[in-house]
Simulated scan of single mutants.
Amino acid sequence: MHNSEQSVRRFHDVLQPRPKATGIDVQCALQHFALITYAIAPEKFQQIIPERFQLDTILYNGKAHVLMSVVPFIDVDFTSAVYPFPKFTMGQTNYRVYVIDRETGERCVWFIGTTLDSWTIVVPRHLWMLPWHRAKIDFDCEFDAQQNCYRHYHMRTQSDWANAELRLTQSTEDTWQFEGFPDLESFQVYLTHPLAGFYHRRDGKLGSYRVWHDRLNPQPAQLNYAKFDLLERMGLVSFEDQQHPYSVLIEPINHFTIYLPPTVY
């Protein structure tokens, strides 16, 4: 079951004050934050997304499609939101699908998994059983502050679970793509403002965590090359089709609060 008619969405309906951070909540800045989004046939997710969630589809090229984003970034100043604590820097890539929680009606994301370049992965992977996987991630990015765009953006991930390579460029001429949405802001809310993420824990149980951030402001960019092993292996997007994303956006830096520990259902 899915709904292909996207309604009008406004940031003023979803922006909220930051909930107070307590305990082990974390704050971080996400640098070189990119969203490479693919439009995928809904049936490809039948064995992946649990019944509790409805695919939040759009009408694209005359058919219902699900949007899925590959989201690479560097966690910088990753630290406690409450206590003085050392700051960590680490590369990360999330693989997420846009869904609706049938129980609450909330629009959220389903995480297929994450690669993380840090020894600190032991906590999310082993203590909280998150579907996070060890990786070596390298970024080579050049941002032109005067032009407010990236001259080049190159990310490479080596991982047993999900090798990846990505090359982007950006110019002031790049245009927005939001086919299937009533307007640009509705698309931006859909893609950038889900605050809850769900996933299958490594023990098979349903897990969830929440984040907070202000309005994000990623801008259009162009894909030069993409190779996401995970999407090919799962039969979601072939290497050939990965060269033709639905949309590509980049934001040089933004700020998140992550509320922990995750919930187990």
Results as ranks from 00 to 15, higher is better:
219 Q>S: 14
99 V>L: 04
35 L>Q: 10
27 Q>M: 11
101 D>A: 05
158 Q>E: 12
184 L>N: 07
67 L>T: 03
36 I>A: 10
140 D>C: 06
260 L>Q: 09
105 G>T: 02
204 G>Y: 10
69 S>Y: 02
101 D>L: 07
63 K>N: 09
238 S>M: 03
43 E>F: 06
227 K>S: 12
190 Y>N: 04
174 D>A: 06
32 H>E: 10
154 H>A: 03
17 P>F: 13
116 L>Y: 13
206 L>C: 07
198 F>P: 02
12 H>F: 15
20 K>C: 11
110 W>E: 03
59 L>R: 12
66 V>W: 00
169 T>G: 05
53 F>S: 00
12 H>N: 15
52 R>Y: 01
121 I>L: 12
144 D>F: 08
26 V>L: 11
191 L>S: 09
64 A>K: 04
9 R>Q: 08
228 F>Y: 03
1 M>W: 13
156 R>H: 11
88 F>C: 13
154 H>L: 12
155 M>P: 01
34 A>V: 05
125 R>I: 00
135 A>K: 01
91 G>W: 06
16 Q>E: 14
131 P>Y: 04
96 R>C: 07
30 L>D: 03
114 T>E: 11
60 Y>P: 06
177 Q>L: 11
31 Q>F: 12
110 W>M: 04
220 P>W: 00
27 Q>F: 12
219 Q>T: 10
175 T>Y: 12
93 T>N: 13
128 W>K: 03
56 D>A: 10
219 Q>F: 10
124 P>A: 11
133 H>M: 05
199 Y>D: 02
166 L>M: 09
13 D>I: 10
245 P>G: 01
83 Y>V: 13
241 D>K: 06
205 K>D: 07
144 D>T: 05
157 T>Q: 05
136 K>Y: 11
151 R>S: 08
196 A>G: 13
260 L>V: 04
146 Q>E: 14
206 L>K: 08
173 E>L: 10
149 C>R: 03
214 D>F: 11
139 F>W: 05
214 D>K: 11
83 Y>F: 15
221 A>N: 03
56 D>Q: 05
8 V>P: 09
160 D>I: 06
247 S>P: 02
26 V>M: 13
197 G>N: 01
160 D>N: 14
30 L>Y: 15
212 W>H: 09
57 T>L: 01
145 A>V: 07
214 D>W: 11
175 T>N: 13
18 R>E: 10
132 W>L: 12
61 N>A: 05
40 I>C: 01
145 A>Y: 04
165 E>P: 04
138 D>T: 15
186 S>F: 05
101 D>N: 06
122 V>C: 13
132 W>P: 01
69 S>N: 04
195 L>K: 14
193 H>I: 09
45 F>N: 01
74 I>Y: 08
149 C>L: 04
57 T>Y: 00
49 I>D: 00
120 T>V: 14
54 Q>E: 08
205 K>T: 11
41 A>L: 11
203 D>W: 00
109 V>R: 07
139 F>D: 05
106 E>H: 13
209 Y>R: 13
29 A>E: 14
175 T>E: 12
260 L>E: 10
253 I>F: 14
85 F>A: 06
124 P>E: 12
176 W>R: 13
